[in-house]
C-alpha cells in the first residue's frame, strides 16, 4: 500500500515546483510529444497536484509515458516545469518497495542486439529504484 500521508506536500517539495504559478494555458500539454499516450496530460498534473488530487496520478500509466524531453519546461510561459511533477509522482510510486515498473528479468525479452547501453541505464533510472 502506498504511504499516502503528505504525498502532495512531498511531491511539491522534491520537485521544487510552485504549481500556483500555472495560469492554465495548456501550452505544456500542446507541446507534449506523449500527449496521445497519456491519460492525464502535463497541465493536469499541475492542476491536480495543486488541488491535492494526486491519487489518480499515482495509479495512472501516464507516469511511464513521459519522455523527460523538457518540451513542457521550455514552452511554459510561467516557468512551472511540469515534468518535475510527473517525475516526482513516478518516484512516489517506484520508491515503494516492490513497485518497480521494470524488472531485470523482463529485459532480455525486450531487447535486440543493437540496443545501446544508454537505453538500459535510462530505462532503469526512470522505471526502477
Amino acid at each position: 500500500m502506498h504511504n499516502k500521508d503528505n504525498v502532495t506536500e512531498r511531491v511539491l517539495r522534491i520537485s521544487g515546483v510552485n504549481a500556483r504559478r500555472c495560469m492554465k494555458c495548456g501550452k505544456c500539454s500542446a507541446s507534449c510529444p506523449s500527449y496521445d499516450e497519456m491519460e492525464y496530460h502535463p497541465h493536469q498534473f499541475v492542476y491536480m497536484v495543486e488541488s491535492g488530487d494526486v491519487e489518480p496520478l499515482l495509479n495512472s500509466r501516464s507516469i511511464y509515458k513521459c519522455l523527460t524531453c523538457f518540451a513542457c519546461v521550455d514552452r511554459c510561459p510561467r516557468g512551472v516545469e511540469p515534468v518535475k511533477l510527473v517525475e516526482a509522482i513516478r518516484l512516489e510510486v517506484i520508491r515503494e518497495q516492490g513497485a518497480n515498473h521494470l524488472r531485470a528479468d523482463d529485459v532480455p525479452a525486450k531487447i535486440d542486439e543493437d540496443v545501446p547501453q544508454q537505453l538500459l541505464v535510462s530505462a532503469f533510472r526512470k522505471y526502477a529504484k
Binding site: 510529444p33 506523449s34 499516450e37 511511464y64 509515458k65 519522455l67 523527460t68 524531453c69 518540451a71 515498473h101 521494470l102 529485459v107 525486450k110 531487447i111 537505453l119 538500459l120 535510462s122 530505462a123 526512470k126 522505471y127
Partner: peptide, 19 residues
C-alpha cells in the same frame, strides 16, 4: 528538435516508433 521516443522504446516500443 522533437524527441525520438528515448527510453520509452523499452516499455512502449509503439509509442517510441511513432515519435
Amino acid at each position: 528538435n522533437e524527441c525520438c521516443g528515448g527510453y520509452v522504446a523499452l516499455d512502449s516500443p509503439d509509442s517510441a516508433a511513432k515519435q
